[in-house]
């Protein structure tokens, strides 16, 4: 297992670094944010900057935030079953804002068939319940690192 917390405690972090910036959002009306917050903390502890937008975000708000924050990756958390409506809209809004190349990942209760469909629409990855945060971190590092 990878350690979740990097151990260079109290070392002054060089300012001249490009840190990975990840936007974590909860679209729709679902208020269960345990997963989103656990992931946000895990990404922070892996050295990333996480912009956390909170609950009830519309697709327009998410794309706008991704643009303003110059996010390297956008993560959505949905447990309400509304993913097949909400995720395509977020993708569409991101394309409209010229953010098509920014990877979008989705976490939550997503039936396997839907996960396949979402990936076909352009979602970079789908993470179900029980996914280790280390797996998410590794994916984000790979996907966000690939960005020009």
């Amino acid at each position: 297992m990878l350690p979740l917390v990097a151990t260079q405690a109290l070392e002054v972090i060089p300012a001249m670094t490009n840190r990975i910036r990840v936007l974590i959002a909860k679209p729709g009306l679902d208020g269960h944010d345990r997963g989103a917050k656990v992931i946000a903390r895990a990404l922070r502890d892996a050295g990333m900057e996480v912009i956390y937008t909170g609950l009830r975000q519309t697709p327009e708000m998410i794309a706008e935030a991704a643009l303003q924050e110059d996010a390297d990756l956008v993560g959505l958390s949905i447990l309400s079953g509304a993913h097949m409506t909400l995720v395509p809209r977020v993708l569409q809004q991101m394309r409209q804002q010229g953010l098509a190349e920014i990877p979008l990942v989705v976490g939550g209760i997503i039936p396997p068939d839907d996960a396949v469909a979402l990936k076909a629409l352009g979602v970079a990855e789908v993470f179900g319940p029980g996914t280790p945060t280390t797996e998410v971190i590794a994916f984000v590092q790979r996907a966000a690192g690939a960005r020009p």
Binding site: V5, A6, T7, Q8, A9, L10, I13, T17, R19, A40, R41, L43, R44, D45, A46, G47, M48, E49, V50, I51, Y52, G54
Partner: peptide, 10 residues
Amino acid sequence: SPFSGGAILG
């Protein structure tokens, strides 16, 4: 975070 260098911006 002084430990990881990451941050949560809320």
